[in-house]
Write a protein that binds this DNA or RNA. Structure first.
Lengths: 223, 223
DNA sequence: CGGCATCCGGGAAGATACTG
DNA sequence: CAGTATCTTCCCGGATGCCG
């Protein structure tokens, strides 16, 4: 842990510019994205951000902690590991992540088949849900992604996603984030993915199929 | 104009990550911010972004043009100068600028007394307006900032800002963006600023005073 | 003068290796 | 597992110069 040097600032009163002073460095906002669904440890952050190097991750976590966006916490024993979590103010950055995500899906250069973290996938359900299509639906969808589990609770015309135990959900998806994304955003049939061993769907298959229609991608920007 | 090299990408299917591929480089989003109220020429962009160097501005404009966010256009003669303007998709990034701006004003490190561009000030009125305080108000506020003019049209419970001729507005502010910001966000009395020659208010002074109360700053984030 | 291209120095990011 | 140390690469910022 060392002292920050003369942090290159925009020196601009505009809030947008100050936001970039805070989270404009490379990887900073993606680190925050990965913490949006709850605390994580260093090695999980590193694994979920392919391409980041350990020293850059250390620098970002130090910087975000110094600005009051991230806090490091020691979990109580047993398993007294150190985790990083967003502060309340850090969690308030979610609208930024959402606005960026929604806007960028209109990019002709956006490639949904690239690698994807489990957190990104769950956040994308928050971002991309279409209220028209969600209306009237009430159910719980479970996700088993590697060792992590999540639940999407559909009620009151909204899809809410969070970490949680999927047992008892109406349907459960098991597979890598990329496979679930292929089904939801790529329109790849479950059977195709199941045949590859990439995806397993348990419980109400009709519900699973309907779930995959709730998140339409916007049109690509033309010129 | 040269070919882009291997642009360092996050290679992540997440929309947020792709957005950062598009506008995550230093200055990129601030260039777009400066174009949000209409086309500008190179030298105006450079002047309104203190600290940017000409070559970086060139690189950003080239990059934004290549990704389809900015277009360069030749104004018809006379005065056939070249200007840069956002594409439709580029203008759709305004919610991002807004979300960043709103969020960052909660930062304890935010200093509203720093330099500010006229565009930033006008956009901040869009971002920070409080519907409760605006309700019932109907008027037109003019701004003369250097050689640029703007109008804030208040109607239907909303403040709309754009470039425009302020003649005939109910009240007109004349001064630097920093002076107007000091009045609106810093609570500095008009008289103080007028005594310094920093601000002039013409027309309905009561309206001007009320206008300055429409944009409350949120509480600072505490841990 | 506006709109760049070129060259240079410093510093941040990326990759790899190493340590408690 | 959670970082640190080192080295290399590349981007950013500043200065200068070209060219319509």
């Amino acid at each position: 842990m060392k002292l920050e040097k003369g942090t290159r600032s925009y020196r601009d009163a505009c809030g947008t510019a100050h936001a970039l002073d805070l989270i404009g460095e490379r990887w900073a906002l993606l680190v925050m994205r990965e913490l949006m669904l709850g605390p994580k440890r260093f090695s999980d952050l590193k694994a979920d951000l392919p391409g980041i190097s350990a020293n850059v991750l250390t620098q970002r976590l130090d910087g975000l902690e110094a600005t009051g966006l991230v806090r490091r916490r020691k979990l109580p024993p047993p398993g007294a590991v150190q985790v990083y979590e967003l502060t309340d103010w850090g969690y308030e950055a979610e609208p930024i992540v959402q606005a960026l995500g929604r806007w960028a899906t209109r990019s002709p250069g956006h490639d949904p088949s690239l690698p994807l973290s489990a957190t990104s996938l769950m956040l994308s359900f928050r971002t991309m849900q279409d209220p028209e299509r969600v209306r009237g639906l009430e159910s719980r969808i479970g996700f088993q992604i590697g060792a992590e589990t999540f639940v999407a609770a559909i009620a009151g015309g909204r899809v809410r996603t969070e970490r949680g135990d999927p047992t008892g959900a109406d349907t459960i998806f098991t597979g890598a984030p990329e496979a679930i994304a292929a089904a939801v955003y790529g329109g790849v049939p479950f059977e195709t993915l199941a045949a590859q061993g990439a995806l397993m769907v348990e419980g109400d298959h009709a519900l699973a199929r309907r779930f995959a229609t709730l998140f339409p991608l916007p049109d690509k920007a033309g010129t």
